[in-house]
Amino acid sequence: MKRLFAKDWWIWIVLPIMLLALYYDFIGSPNDVQLGASARILYFHIGSAAVAGIAFTVTAVASIGYLIQRTVVWDIWAAASAEIGTVFTTMILVSGTIWGRVAWGAWWTWDPRLTATLILWVIFAGYLLLREWSDNFERRATYSAIIALIAYIDVPIDYMTIRWWRSIHPVIFTNQGINMPVSMQIPMFLSMGAMTLVFILWMAVRMRLMRAEMGVVDLKNAIRSHIEG
């Protein structure tokens, strides 16, 4: 236990905030009038959707940065953010199916919103496979940046699906304001904020690991060029 807190103690700061948000989401806040208890999963759902949106946006921006500047830092940003975004998209899909079973009576329907989200998930899974399967660093970075930019088109479309087409997915953020009572907005924004903190923390941790891995590669290359040169 002591070892657990000796170094890297700072990552444990976010955990209580997240758990507090979860507690407030599931137990602390009042029930929804129509949907009852099942609506509470929504807070978590929206939170992970917001984080996934942020994560993929970071990936897209970092990919543009990489294509312009060709520096390793941008690639690390893009890769770490895409990984986290994919994990959070998985959470959206899982929490969405749990909620859909209760609210719509079906685990899954081929609604525009659901389809667009699933496509996004599959594409970014392919993006991660592309990164996993390629060996040349520069090629990997360039190709994955191009794929990420093409894939990012789906993110705004996914956001707008429920506004452009008839969809059974509820709309919360409309032009007229937030379609939700204040008592429900508090836990929603709380879980959004807490999950954004988790995202930032995870980015920091993941990028640190990637940088350490790059250090190993750099050393290997340095030794190799020393021996050969």
Partner: peptide
Amino acid sequence: NLKSGEMI
């Protein structure tokens, strides 16, 4: 240009 290009 990739190793397992067909798959990707």
